[in-house]
Design a protein around this nucleic acid. Structure first.
Lengths: 125, 125
DNA sequence: CTGTCCGCTACGGAATTTGTAGCAGACAGG
DNA sequence: CCTGTCTGCTACAAATTCCGTAGCGGACAG
C-alpha cells in the first residue's frame, strides 16, 4: 500500500491532499534515507543494505517496491536509481542536509561528527 | 527516544550524520504532518487531533514530546507552536506542497483534489 | 453538585519493523 | 557437471510501534 488510492482517505489527511500522500510515503522508516543514498548514483540492493546498516532485506524490499510504485525510483541493470521525479524530490530533500547541521549543533552539539567540520565543503552536489 | 544520542548509532545511519537523525525523527508517522499543520499557527492538542483525524492521543502526545525535545515546537499558553527552528524546517518542507501536486498528477491523477485546481495560485506565501 | 470540555495517560489488539535463515540464479574454477 | 561464492530477494517469528477506546484530573458554567 504505497500510494493511497484516491477513494481511500490518506492516513492522517484531513482533505486527502497530495502532500499527505507524500508524508505518508516518506514518513516511513528508511524511505527518505533510501532516496538520500540513491542520490549519489545508482546502487544495488546489497549496497543499499550496507548504507542503511540495520535495515532488513524485506523492509528494504518493501520500501523499494513502494518507492517504485510511486515512480520515485526505478530498476535498471545497475540496480536501483532515482527517476526524474525522484531527482526532483531529492532536490527538495537536499537543503535538509545543510539545515540538519545547524539543527544538530543546537539540539545536540556533540552529535555533529568531527569529520563533517573538515569535510563539509564537498557538499556542493 | 526522539533525538539519537551521539554515542548511539542512529537507526540506519552509516555515519551518524545529522541528516539521518532528522530522517529518523521525521520518518515517523505524523511527524511531518504535525509540523505542516502547526505551520498555520499555534494549535491546541485537540485541534491537532482533529487535523490528523485518525491519530491516537498517545501517539500525538509522543510525537509532540519528541518534536519538543528536538526543539522544533514549543508549548505556549495557546497550545503548541513552531519554534524558530521549526519554522526553518517548515520552510524546507513547504516546497513539498507544490511538488506533491505535480507528483500526484503523474502517479495518481484522480488523487489531486478538485478544490486544488481552483486554489493553488495562493501558494506564493 | 452536575455536566461539559480540555490535555493527557493507560492499555489491549493490530500493524509495522527487525533479525535471521534460506532459496534461486549467475559466474568462476576445476 | 560439481563446488563454492556472490547477488537479489523471500519467509517468518519476535520485537517494536501504532491505533482505538476508555478514562483520569482540572477548569469552568449552571
Amino acid at each position: 500500500m504505497a500510494i493511497p488510492k484516491p477513494g481511500q482517505p490518506v492516513r492522517g489527511s484531513q482533505s486527502g491532499a497530495p502532500i499527505m500522500a507524500i508524508f505518508d510515503l516518506l514518513g516511513r522508516r528508511w524511505a527518505m534515507g533510501i532516496i538520500w543514498n540513491l542520490s549519489r548514483g545508482p546502487s544495488t540492493f546489497r549496497l543499499l543494505q550496507s548504507y542503511c546498516e540495520t535495515i532488513s532485506p524485506s523492509m528494504l524490499n518493501n520500501r523499494l517496491k513502494e518507492l517504485r510504485e510511486a515512480k520515485l525510483i526505478t530498476r535498471t541493470l545497475d540496480g536501483y536509481e532515482l527517476t526524474e521525479m525522484g531527482e526532483e524530490l531529492f532536490a527538495l530533500l537536499k537543503p535538509f542536509g545543510i539545515w540538519s547541521l545547524s539543527w544538530a549543533e543546537k539540539v545536540a552539539p556533540e552529535f555533529v561528527p568531527p569529520w563533517n567540520e573538515a569535510n563539509n565543503d564537498k557538499e556542493t552536489t
